[in-house]
């Protein structure tokens, strides 16, 4: 799963370079430029990918480590 998460990060970087919408003037829902809508999708995809990263790639041993001697 760790490899899948890192592959998703790479995929996001590739999808970020969306040459296919470069000159596209269409409006999604009649008001949102398609290039902007695509990149909003990239932002949401990034959040999902990082959610997976915190589930599957979080460093072992860090889960419950806290600052010694400090209280909130």
């Amino acid at each position: 799963m760790v490899k899948v998460v890192w592959a998703l990060v790479l995929l996001l970087i590739v999808l970020h370079q969306d040459l296919w919408f470069w000159e596209d003037q269409r409006l999604v829902f009649g008001f949102l430029p398609i290039g902007l809508a695509w990149h909003m999708g990239i932002s949401m995809g990034a959040s999902l990918t990082w959610l997976l990263a915190t589930w599957f790639c979080w460093p072992k041993g860090d889960a419950h480590s806290t600052a010694p001697g400090d209280a909130a």
Binding site: M40, S43, M44, A46, S47, W50, L51, A53, T54, W58, P59, D62, A63, H64, S65, T66, A67, D70, A72
Partner: peptide, 19 residues
Amino acid sequence: ARSAESFKLAVVLHPVFIM
């Protein structure tokens, strides 16, 4: 940060907050 766990929320929500 109080703990390493504290980072998780920032890691996940930062992209959506930027949006």
